[in-house]
Amino acid sequence: MKLDVAIEPIVTDNTAFTVLTALRQLGYAELERVWRADHLLLELSGDGSAEEVVARLSRAEIVFNPNKHRLRYAIAGVRAARGEMFEALVRDRDENNDRLVATLRTTFGIAGLRALERSMAWRLDDRAGPATMKRLEWACQALLANPISQTYEIRPAPEYRELGEPASAASKRVR
């Protein structure tokens, strides 16, 4: 099983504002909103449910602090993604998460964790609605990803939900 996890700031996101301003100055004048989250892609083995893993992850203060974050998740590849909304994942080329995986396994009890990829997730909204894939591609090339040290991937945005929230509620909620 693979889990997409988004850890979003719930306090003022200065970085998102800076990106908003910078992208406007770079020519994306109709941009209205920038959303950003730490993204984890967890590769899991064993019989544990997604909810159990997310519950354990929500106690792992090395990645999540309830005083400043909201944690949402989606089961990768299970649900059909909403085609009209895209998300850019920007990842460091030299990323090494071995220590984080070991800590999550041993200290925080996510025993079935086999691997983890960490990236920054970005979504953009403009006056017409969610930004197109082409726009996100441009934003990654112009600002969001440093080609020397980072890679990026643009994909249909998953429908994240909070722990205990039914999938149907997540699909109805306006993000």
Partner: peptide, 15 residues
């Protein structure tokens, strides 16, 4: 501590 969330200040060193 969870309830103290609004008492947390948000830094902006660039500003």
């Amino acid at each position: 501590s969870h309830a103290n969330k609004s008492a947390v200040q948000v830094p902006d060193p660039f500003l």
